[in-house]
């Protein structure tokens, strides 16, 4: 099962501004960024979606819109280093 899991590694911290710029570029312009104790929270009120950004982790919390989730995932992975 380790082959299944280990396709790519992503590492590094996410640059919030770079992430928001990329969201805007993809047409997601209603974006609010708040500071949190551990990092930032990116809120997409139109999409009912929250993204918690911390130094070594990101949590995407959304309703069941798979198209949006995959889009957010792809944008996020572009902002990280890949091995």
């Amino acid at each position: 099962s380790s082959d299944r899991k280990r396709r790519s590694y992503f590492w590094g911290a996410l640059d919030v501004q770079e992430f928001v710029d990329k969201l805007n570029k993809e047409g997601l312009t209603d974006v609010k960024v708040e500071d949190s104790a551990e990092g930032h929270i990116v809120h997409l009120p139109n999409e009912d979606t929250l993204i918690q950004l911390e130094e070594g982790s990101t949590h995407i919390i959304c309703e069941g819109n798979e198209g949006l989730r995959v889009k957010l995932k792809d944008i996020l992975l572009q902002c990280l280093n890949r091995l």
Binding site: S8, W11, G56, S57, I60
Partner: peptide, 24 residues
């Protein structure tokens, strides 16, 4: 090296990515 070992050798920490979705 395989990716697992390379991450260790280079002292890199994987960025943990998690998703939570809710359906009705």
């Amino acid at each position: 090296l395989d990716a697992d070992q390379a991450m260790n050798e280079l002292g890199l920490e994987e960025h943990q990515l998690r998703f939570t979705s809710t359906v009705v």
